[in-house]
Amino acid sequence: MQPKKSARSTQEPRWLRYSLIGIALAFLLSFLFLPLVFVFVQALAKGVDTYLDALKEPDAWSAIRLTLITAAIAVPFNLVFGVAASWAIARFEFKGKAFLVSLIDLPFAVSPVICGLIYILLFGSHGWIGPWLQDHDIKIVFAIPGIVLATVFVTFPFVARELIPLMQAQGKDEEEAAISLGASGFQTFWRVTLPNVKWGLIYGVILCNARAMGEFGAVSVVSGHIRGETNTMPLHIEILYNEYQQAAAFAVASLLALLALVTLVLKSVVEWRLRKELAAQDELPPDGLPATPRTAHA
């Protein structure tokens, strides 16, 4: 698109371009791609039968099941929160909004180990409500509820973080139009907001799910590591690895690596859709839109 002459003066010499690309690719290949390949090679190192046996083992099964259950609880919880938070933050003005947004980001700044620790301080046998829970025979830490809670904590910001900037960028004109035309709040949300933020929402859910299934530090602290009961997949991998069962450890790890690959592919697809949608929005000039009453609440 640019004439060749001017392009040359704002480009690096050819040798530099190639060496920069070379350095970048060498770094990505050795630091990211090599480990990814290594997981699958190690998993299948002792043959397909050993691989399948490692996955069929009852402890592995229960770890897979617990991981799926945890994600199936944690993701919807944070999804509902993300939608509520972004509706409040992107659609209304109120004092302390910036502060609230920083608070939502807080779990990202906290070490996973500390995420686990706080639930032990609350629900452990020496914790705030630990004795009360013991009296009523309710187990939270070193049991499944604790694992779910820790997972909810570490994946807390994902959906909200994707939705808030997206909804802020889209503005509230369309929703106001729907309301002023007589739609109920629920109809507006279901028919206008949700289709508009669909891809951003999916994007957040994908990231949230990947983290929920893969979380190690926080879950490790609250799990109690009871084999076949409170082990998630990452914890099961740790146990196998520490018992020098390399092939089995990498077999379970390969499932999580597959999950990571699926996440990356879905993420790329959704990113592409998001970009397309935003570009389509930009192309329409404001007065080219069908006659929507833009100042409905005047």
Partner: peptide, 20 residues
């Protein structure tokens, strides 16, 4: 390669740990 950059976000840390 662009998609690969996100691998550390997507790959569980325990997997990264035993692999590295």
């Amino acid at each position: 390669f662009d998609a690969l950059v996100d691998l550390p976000f997507a790959l569980p840390t325990a997997v990264a740990g035993i692999t590295l």
